[in-house]
Design a protein around this nucleic acid. Structure first.
Lengths: 259, 259
DNA sequence: TAGTGGTCTAGACCACTTC
DNA sequence: AAGTGGTCTAGACCACTAA
């Protein structure tokens, strides 16, 4: 059943792997140095390094330059269901504002585990098609990077038609209102209450940029999520794209069997 | 912005990568031999091989032992929405049967791009919890491997309570009835019409077994899908687990924003 | 300063494919 | 038989971390 290349580097990697999964090496624990592995197994340093590299691309360990190799800590997994968009979570009746302590002049702000950056950009083909405008037309882009416990977990970039959000606090963001899911609140105030969501999901390996942005360990895939939000009348009011570190999420959907 | 290690192997890999994305090397096309790359760049064979290995783990190329390295063909992507479970697709009124030409005696059969294997197995903890039975209780396991154009795309293994399907054609499978989505038809005949589905999705790197089973190229993630099917009364009638080659699918879900 | 991961060279052997 | 990918050795240098 097993079609394993029985090579020294694979054997060393397998030994280390079973040490990890069996718990002999606990998360955060340090692996033997590559030089030590080489000596213990009687192989060259290069071969031992290759074994460690295998575990790295498998996402089992992380290496810290000049420090050592460590068993990767498994991150808490968050389950994402439709309830994360529930009205009760973003619909506010009394607007509570609070001032920004640090008084940033830039549009980028740190607030509650996310950065936010709003700008006016020309729509690309996909965005234009979804929002029902022409490619190149200006749209408001609201780019966010969400973090949890100081670790970046995902990005989410929303696009709005200019006419839909012009003059709102989303365009000139102040803390307290344009936070998480604040977009839906603003669209509701604009007479465009969101009603229906379509989410498309695809998994792939990250680009080099995404590895840096999300601080992804080697061997961690990402899930690319495209979200289209419509009103009850079917008008598209938001198009959003997000990149999620795969290991930190589970998506969950419940629906009736169609006819 | 770019935090790229400027090493020879990276540089070679980058050159090849831009040849691929620019189209100078078309899908299915052959890359220069490692020895040639080494000579052209004036590096050791080892270094050139490392560059090729980088592209391989990125999923951009495939290597064929003893033959060469080739630009990976992009597979057609299938969009998966709830409509794939539509009643009209599996509910049959007139049962059409046809005979198995090859007359296999085994329970494993080839039919229309999928293998099927039915057996009675003890339920693991997760399956038991979902189906509402005790761990170790016997359940019917229906394991399938789906292929498309001769390429395996995903596995899907369903679990049924013994009492729910005993004596049906699912247990003693004959071709023509227990094909794709045949399980729902049988459950309906048993007085347990499926009504609601919950799907959980998670992306991760494949195990060694999955790489072999799905013939996955290096650097291709998988999506693990867990499906729970219930009747209108909320009774769980099927629990299924599937492994999908990520690059061949997009999942799509549409739902109303909850309150 | 000592230890560590990362990378490289030059040469070698093996396994597999293609002809 | 020739070409190719995969792996290995032995030794070297560099960049980074930690004390």
């Amino acid at each position: 059943m097993e079609e394993n290349a029985d090579t020294p580097s694979r054997r060393i990697a397998d030994d280390l792997r079973s040490d990890i999964v069996s718990g002999h090496l606990s998360p955060g624990g340090k692996l033997p140095a590559v030089r030590d592995l080489a000596a213990r197994y009687g192989v060259s340093r290069n071969t031992a390094a290759k074994a460690v590299a295998l575990l790295k691309t498998d996402g089992l360990i992380t290496t810290r330059y000049g420090s050592g190799s460590y068993v990767r800590e498994s991150h808490p997994i968050r389950r994402l269901g439709p309830e994360r968009y529930a009205r009760s979570k973003w619909q506010v009746t009394t607007v509570t504002t609070y001032t920004d302590d640090r008084g940033d002049s830039a549009a980028t702000q740190q607030q509650g585990g996310q950065t936010q950056d709003v700008s006016l950009v020309p729509a690309d083909d996909r965005t234009a098609a979804v929002l029902g405008i022409e490619p190149g037309d200006l749209v408001y882009e609201r780019a966010r990077v969400m973090t949890r416990d100081g670790v970046p977990t995902h990005t989410m970039t929303s696009y709005y038609r200019q006419v839909d959000v012009e003059g709102t606090s989303l365009v000139d963001p102040r803390p307290g209102i344009a936070g998480r899911s604040g977009g839906y609140q603003i669209l509701t105030e604009q007479g465009l209450p969101p009603h229906e969501i379509t989410e498309d999901l695809a998994a792939r390996m990250p680009t080099a940029d995404e590895v840096i942005l999300l601080d992804l360990p080697a061997g961690e895939p990402v899930v690319e999520l495209h979200r289209v939000t419509r009103t009850a009348e079917g008008q598209v009011i938001e198009y959003a794209r997000g990149i999620h570190a795969a290991s930190r999420f589970i998506w969950s959907y419940t629906y009736d069997i169609p006819d």
